[in-house]
Amino acid sequence: MEPQIDDSQLIKRYCAGEEKALELLINRHNQRLSSFIYSKVNDREITEDIFQDTFIKVIKTFKRGAYNEEGKFLPWVMRIAHNLIIDHFRRNSRMPMLDGSQSFNIFSVLGDDKLNIEKQLIKNQIYSDLNLLIQELPVDQKEVLVMRMYQDMSFKEIAENTGVSINTALGRMRYALINLRKLIEQNDIVLTN
């Protein structure tokens, strides 16, 4: 059986250009590091990602000659992994990942808020019918209704523009709506989408 070479020796060999030393180092700490990450994130794929990112940082540090031999290798790697786990949770708290694997299905609440072509046609038809009905109203009522609903004017502005009191404008609006309902009922019109 080959005697165990300690981590610092492997790191020296790797920094001297022996790629095989890195393989030994990764394989030696694979289970411990992966299990540590998995214990925090509880997801196999995320564990793989964080493990990979951890060793990318390790490789870069070695290649840059920035590795400090003061501490031991494993606690240092665990610290890198720990920081990456924190980054992962921070990122996820900003952008939570939802999938349909559990009882909650994201697609049951997500939807395209645009109307489909059929509903859009119905909506256009309703607006067109309503426009015809409004034309049937007495002029003073029609004027108030158009200003309020289509021009988004306040009753104060309507009163000023039509030269009547606010109460009169309110009353005309009320009668306009009553008369519209009557027209709809009399003509058996169904206005729904």
Binding site: Q31, S34, S35, R44, Q52, I59, K63, G65
Partner: peptide, 26 residues
């Protein structure tokens, strides 16, 4: 005890890291 499972990263991940190491030059 599901959170305390002993696992190892995949061979592909290790292979990727070794290839990354070979390709990286500072």
């Amino acid at each position: 005890q599901s959170h305390c499972k002993l696992i190892k990263s995949k061979r592909e991940t290790v292979a990727f890291l070794l290839n990354y190491s070979k390709s990286l030059k500072i």
